[in-house]
Write a protein that binds this DNA or RNA. Structure first.
Lengths: 247, 247
DNA sequence: CGTTATATTGAGGACTATCAAACAAAGTGG
DNA sequence: CCACTTTGTTTGATAGTCCTCAATATAACG
């Protein structure tokens, strides 16, 4: 906000919030840094650098040594692993505020690739570990976020292990919608920043099956396919029930 | 060890290692408490109580409020979620040293049920959080373990999303073998503390498919089925390659 | 040693994958 | 501005892996 400088004038010292980039970071209330005070944020900011990527660009590849951890500031990222014969499994989509880098000091077990133009805060692991030591609030927050990620991973395991194609896609749309609402999106509408192939590789299906189920849902009035990869969800509750395997 | 008391006599003070139950705990080097010093362990021990369960008994059920976290001391546990129509997905098997309780303050999203006679250290969440505050080494260790769990969850997601039945079972046997080696078991041999149905519900298959693949593997000489649910793995490397989807 | 739970094997069917082609959208260059 | 290529999506026909249903065999247990 342009009015921000005026606000700092009323204080007798320059507040950190006014001088470092975190002050306007949209990801801050959602990221690892959510619970940090101003002077703690400064420590974070000093250890970090901003990285950006365009769609299709990788932050790092499967097998690469990966000495960094990331906090997504803006845009979307997909994580995936490849089997030797080319089969691909997308293990997650990352959005604003998501943390990337828990687990795995060694070579990365997956590729992280931008889905849209994106930016992230990047930290060297060593420095990030020092921050964890110095800032208990940061480590507490990281534990909480790790717990959330584990819960999400469990959800995905149930989806992949036991749900039908229709249930998978219903769950997917419901979850993505919830996430976008959390990020300030409109209820009853989802934007799909990924292709059908990405969706298929995330849900353990083929692109054809994904397309067919979308068509089914459209025909039965559960969704409407809008321009620009937007999807309207006229009855989110029905979609949610379907995704949960309502008998 | 009976000789233990004699050892304490040589010191001029009673060491904590000699008086509290952690001193002989086989799970200690593997659990969250691995990195703790004697006096720190005492704090842990004070906040914990030992719980035991027999096969089929649940530590808690899906939907229950669950104010505890656990550290498995001995035996094996399965975690599972049920869909409304009865479909079941086992999201994990827990063994000595495994931590249970990351994520989810609210009602539990899964059931934890003993597979064998088992015992665990149990902490109230509130008290465990206090320990995390007081013992940075504990929280560091927890972050590391959470990272490992996330990696394992990713592996399972790849397995469920993209691997064939044969690959799933090969991966399963390989992983279980590795874990049992870590716990002091013999290489080239696995013990299966779970039923075929459990394996099926873990791998997103049916009991019949699991049985058929076991038979295939037996016929092709990849495994031998021994009494007491033991399995011999004459060629662990071949099994591993198969599980990784070697083209 | 009978009884129950668990495991194996068989036959047929279903859901999703594979193969193939048409269609739509987006970007390029003449 | 419009052919033309490229990328992504939809639809159709067929096949395959795994599931379902059913029966038998084996193991566990009182």
């Amino acid at each position: 906000m342009p009015a921000h400088n005026a606000a700092s004038a009323q204080a007798d010292e320059i507040r950190l919030e006014d001088v470092h980039p975190c002050s306007t970071c949209g990801a801050r209330p959602l990221g690892v840094c959510a619970d940090l005070k101003g002077h703690e944020l400064q420590g974070m900011a000093c250890a970090s650098e901003t990285v950006t990527a365009q769609p299709g660009q990788a932050l790092f590849h499967e097998g690469d040594p990966n000495p960094f951890v990331f906090n997504v500031v803006d845009g979307a990222v997909k994580l995936y692993r490849l089997l030797p014969d080319g089969r691909r499994q997308i293990t997650g989509f990352l959005f604003q505020g998501d943390f990337l880098g828990l687990g795995g000091r060694g070579p990365s077990s997956f590729t992280a690739e931008a889905l849209t133009p994106m930016s992230a805060c990047r930290f060297r692991r060593g420095e990030f570990d020092q921050l964890l030591n110095a800032l208990p609030a940061l480590e507490h927050r990281l534990v909480a976020m790790a717990g959330d990620e584990l819960m999400a991973a469990q959800e995905q395991i149930v989806l992949l292990g036991r749900k039908t194609a229709r249930e998978r896609i219903a769950s997917f749309l419901t979850r993505l919608s919830a996430r976008q609402v959390q990020l300030g999106g409109a209820e009853g509408r989802v934007h799909l920043p990924m292709t059908r192939l990405d969706i298929a590789d995330y849900l353990g299906l083929t692109i054809e099956t994904v397309s067919r189920v979308f068509t089914q849902f459209k025909t039965s009035g559960l969704i409407q396919l809008l321009p620009n990869n937007d999807v309207a969800l006229p009855d989110p509750e029905a979609l949610k029930a379907l995704g949960e395997g309502a008998a």
